[in-house]
Design a binder for these strands. Structure first.
Length: 727
DNA sequence: AACGTAAGAG
């Protein structure tokens, strides 16, 4: 009988499907429509649907239309047709979940006296997909106490929840279960989930053992291991795993994710050779236009410092997403291409790609590197709009920005409103205070941090020592050094360099030298720091000893020769200055030109020492500068000629001092009548003469002037500076 | 009937 209607049933199914596809765009189709379809189903299949599968087209349509009422109606029909609930239940639960109706799915689930394992699996998988890990693990435990053994589907999803929740022991127990059930070796899905889980616990060795036991390895399994190595900092292993996959696993081909992860490791290793080779492989295997591979290629080139190659890759990307943009922006900032990075950020916003906290903190870092306060403020606005201004990741970018723009109060207020603080937020605000010479505030925060039980790291130590250094708190600094030495942390050369600088500038040169002798492998920076202290205190003898030391480590070090030549100049040994200069010339070394930048009306203007012509308003600048110098002289400013490192006539020395880049920048800002405080950014350190002059000018023009030099901040106000003349 | 893998940050 049924066979006679076979053709008709087939026909009706096809017409149902056609009808379904035609109406998928109409959301919320009526219930009467469902009834009609159901009647059609009944008529054409003789009496009533014989399997639950007959409901599939209708359910599909409910899912496409997100119609939970449709599902309820089908549930009623199913009940009427007398299907056992275990059978129909899993279909209904699955459909409800696909409509996003977890509550209804749960309601169905709870009402089922006997549940098919598929029902359990669907619910567990849904909860994990929606990052409701706790609930999914509870569900998994409930399943086991209900004497339902997990299968390969359960196990392939539940490990993600274990690793996200840090449930290592429970993961191990379930791994044992997988071994007993034979699923570890026979099912690559379970194997991949295990590998992923172990690498997230940092156990790459365990992960590799699992991988080796899996009988039929696939690309996902191997990729999971490569990613694991890459994310655990074992980049060389990641590249090795990729290579052995290419050589030993003939029937496993890498896909876009495999390329994506191995390329990141090449980038971390700065292994351009393999990077380019693998770039070639992506082209050959057709994954060159896959977004994941492209994004990693971009990142790899940026980490290797090849900005032009990365731009070439970026140009080929048709639809960069949030991650692509973020990688691009942060990589450009890392390569000192802030302007381009910020242009990228603006383009991204125009393309209405939403930024996340990573994107925002990278863009902010671009601004703070260039002390672009206005641009940074605009990003702050964007952050408020997207609700990231109190996020600890993006927030620390903001703190850094305000710190590096000399606005400690803003930095503090951002810190105080963060939803959550950690070591890094503390480090950032402490470092901001340190740079701006607010040593006490930084130390208070350090104590607060210790009281909260946060574990300090190497940046914390550096921030505290720098805070002492920049505020002239030498005794406190020595105390902290002792404290940190007694702790478990290994002090780095950077920490010692900070101490050497502190002691050296305080004139305690012998103590500073003893500290260096304590260091296992003193580096160039450490010696050079002491050398510059010798320069300040005009200790030629020690300086010459250090010079010999440095030239052993780094023959022909530019900074050393410049420092020596300046030291000879300040002590009037002009013949030695000439020697140094010719030595430098022989090695084709040139001094970095001194530069200053100032932001006026959202535009940044650049000034170079001694360059009076390249600015289009040089006439007005010189006129203003002349007036400022005259007014400063009236209040007692006298040129300090010890800052001139060339042997020349006294009047020429004066002229050269008057043309220092920060003086030009300040004169320009005064001429343009900048509102509020004047903010200068410098590539070198401020000289004593400019420091004296700016102090007086800040009183003359009744304006705060802040100057960020290569090491720290100076806030000039009413005739004095926040550094207390100690820098 | 259902399941796993990828890329970015202070």
């Amino acid at each position: 009988m049924r066979r006679d209607y076979g053709g008709l049933i087939a026909y009706s199914r096809i017409s149902l499907r056609v009808f379904a596809t035609r109406t998928t765009h109409i959301l919320g189709f009526s219930e009467s429509y469902l009834h009609t379809q159901f009647r059609l189903l009944c008529i054409t299949s003789d009496s009533s649907p014989t399997t639950t599968h007959d409901f599939s087209p209708l359910l599909r349509q409910c899912i496409d239309g997100r119609s939970i009422s449709g599902i309820k109606s089908i549930q009623a029909q199913m009940l009427k047709s007398g299907f056992p609930i275990q059978l129909s239940g899993s279909k209904l639960v699955d459909a409800s979940l696909k409509c996003g109706e977890i509550n209804y799915a749960r309601h169905l689930f709870d009402g089922m006296p006997e549940r098919h394992i598929v029902t359990w699996n669907s619910l567990i998988a849904y909860l994990i997909r929606h990052r409701r890990n706790k609930e999914s693990v509870e569900m998994y435990r409930l399943m086991i106490t209900n004497n339902v053994l997990p299968d390969e589907y359960t196990l392939s999803s539940v490990f993600k929840a274990f690793s996200d929740l840090g449930l290592e022991k429970e993961a191990q127990r379930s791994h044992g279960l997988a071994v007993v059930l034979g699923l570890e070796v026979s099912n690559a899905f379970v194997g991949s989930a295990l590998v992923d889980c172990y690498v997230k616990f940092g156990k790459t060795r365990e992960a590799k053992l699992v991988l080796e036991r899996v009988e039929e390895k696939d690309v996902v399994l191997i990729t999971a291991l490569i990613v694991g190595y890459s994310q655990n900092g074992e980049d060389a292993e990641a590249v090795k795993a990729f290579q052995s996959m290419m050589v030993e696993e003939e029937n496993v081909q890498p896909n876009e994710y495999t390329y994506a992860s191995v390329l990141i490791s090449c980038g971390n290793l700065k292994d351009l050779g393999n990077g380019k080779l693998i770039h070639g492989l992506t082209v050959k295997s057709g994954f060159e236009s896959a977004l994941a591979s492209q994004t990693s290629l971009l990142t790899m080139y940026l980490r290797c410092g090849l900005v032009d190659d990365s731009l070439r890759v970026f140009k080929c990307i048709k639809h960069p997403n949030q991650v692509t943009w973020t990688s691009f922006i942060s990589g450009l900032v890392q390569n000192g291409r802030e302007e381009m990075a910020l242009a990228g950020f603006r383009k991204m916003m125009r393309d209405s790609t939403k930024p996340n906290s990573f994107t925002l903190s990278s863009a902010l870092r671009g601004c703070s590197n260039l002390a672009m306060l206005e641009e940074g403020r605009q990003i702050h606005g964007v952050m408020t709009k997207y609700g990231f201004d109190r996020d600890k990741f993006a927030g620390s970018g903001l703190i850094d920005l305000y710190g590096k723009c000399g606005c400690s109060e803003m930095a503090r207020s951002v810190f105080d409103t963060l939803y959550e603080v950690d070591v890094i937020s503390f480090n950032t605000i402490m470092y901001s205070y340190a740079q701006n010479g607010f040593g006490r505030e930084a130390i208070d925060l350090f104590e607060e941090m210790m009281n909260l039980g946060l574990q300090p790291n190497d940046v914390t130590v550096l921030s505290v020592l720098l805070a002492c250094n920049n505020s002239g708190l030498v005794e406190e600094g020595c105390g902290f050094l002792d404290l940190f030495r007694k702790g478990t942390m290994v002090l780095t050369n950077d920490h010692y360099a900070c101490m050497v600088d502190m002691l050296g500038r305080a004139g305690r040169l012998e103590e500073a030298e003893m500290l260096i002798r304590e260091v296992v492998k003193p580096d160039l920076v450490l010696w050079r720091t002491l050398l510059s202290a010798c320069k300040i205190h005009r200790n030629v003898e020690m300086a010459e000893m250090i010079k010999r030391k440095i030239l052993e480590i780094a023959p022909g070090d530019e900074g050393t020769l410049i420092l020596m030549s300046n030291l000879y100049a300040t002590t009037g040994k002009w013949n030695r200055v000439v020697e140094m200069k010719s030595e430098m010339k022989e090695m084709k070394l040139k001094k970095n030109p001194a530069m200053s930048w100032v932001e006026v009306d959202k535009e940044t203007h650049t000034f170079m020492a001694g360059d009076l012509l390249s600015h289009s308003n040089s006439e007005q600048i010189l006129e203003t500068l002349g007036e400022l110098i005259k007014m400063a002289r009236d209040l007692g400013y006298v040129e300090d000629k010890s800052c001139v490192f060339q042997d020349m006539e006294e009047s020429a020395k004066e002229r050269s001092l008057h043309q220092h880049s920060e003086k030009l920048a300040i004169a320009f800002a005064v001429w343009r009548n900048v509102g509020g405080s004047i903010r200068i950014l410098k590539n070198l350190r401020v000289c004593v003469d400019c420091h004296n002059w700016i102090k007086i000018v800040s009183r003359v023009i009744k304006r705060e002037i802040s100057c960020r030099d290569s090491k720290r901040f100076h806030h000039f106000r009413d005739g004095s500076c926040s550094c207390g003349d100690y820098w």
